[in-house]
Design a protein around this nucleic acid. Structure first.
Lengths: 144, 144
DNA sequence: ATGGCTGCAAACAGTTTGCATGCCC
DNA sequence: GGGCATGCAAACTGTTTGCAGCCAT
């Protein structure tokens, strides 16, 4: 968990990066595992996790948050924001909305170097589902 | 997980809300469990989880994300942003930085109703630790 | 009294880790 | 050849859930 300086180039690692870069769906570790498995059939889930961890610490991929649930990963390093569906947890890309870092943090004392902006809403699929069937209202509380 | 209309008033529930409202530290479920336990000694962790879930679905508290790790909870319903320490995971309050919701979502089709803004950085404590001892560089990748 | 709520503990899901072996440098 | 990386599986952590009894309404 410490010095991330030197890394070997293994087939597993290459394919993991490729698949993640190719996907725009912000896959979970398990999802990525499935797609990588098609090209490296006997890769193990543990290896996927180990590499995702390594790569995100090396700054080669981004790790997204998810409350209690599964982490999602993003191969797109361009600064950009996300749209998250409160209903199904899907994450879509959005452009970058510029936000100025707080310059005069009264007493926060934090060294800031970035921000994470996520728009909260309901994705088209879930919206339709809700408005066709009289669906249930399981909308975990939203911040905003 | 559905109809959040009617809830009873139990001592456990009251204390959970009170402790959460009183804390400005965005405690995890386990941390909250500890502080509630001082007033309701034989409450169970399961009850804490059940209530946190209920309350957040009722909109009475906020549930914060945490990648892979523990969820944190916020009793402050005022719209506000957060400062998150990449090193230790601590979460502090920040004011509200106004951000306009994307008005012309080209093809996103999302129904948006809020956003979540988190400034990423290193908290005073971790910063000091890093600069006193030649600490390790475990900085999970940051978004922004 | 009635059914939502609780404590307890077992079950789960996602993630991490130890170990022996394999393969990149 | 040396040591990082892998596959496998067990271990862990955080969270959820089934059940029998309790208590607010």
């Amino acid at each position: 968990m410490a010095d991330p300086s030197f890394h070997r180039t293994t087939r597993q690692r290459e394919v993991i990066i490729e698949e993640l870069r190719a996907s725009h769906e912000h896959p979970t570790a398990a999802e990525l595992y499935q797609s990588v498995r098609r090209r490296v059939p006997n890769i193990s889930l543990g290896t996927v996790y180990r590499n995702l961890d390594l790569l995100s610490q090396a700054g080669m991929i981004r790790k997204l948050d998810a409350a209690g649930g599964e982490a999602r990963f993003d191969g797109n390093l361009e600064p950009h924001d996300h749209l998250r569906c409160v209903r199904c947890g899907a994450v879509s890309d959005a452009g970058r909305t510029p936000v100025a870092l707080p310059q005069d943090p009264p007493a926060c004392g934090y060294r800031l170097f970035g921000y994470r902006l996520e728009f909260i809403g309901i994705c088209p699929g879930c919206w339709d589902a809700t408005h066709l069937t009289k669906a249930q209202g399981s909308t975990d509380n939203v911040e905003g």
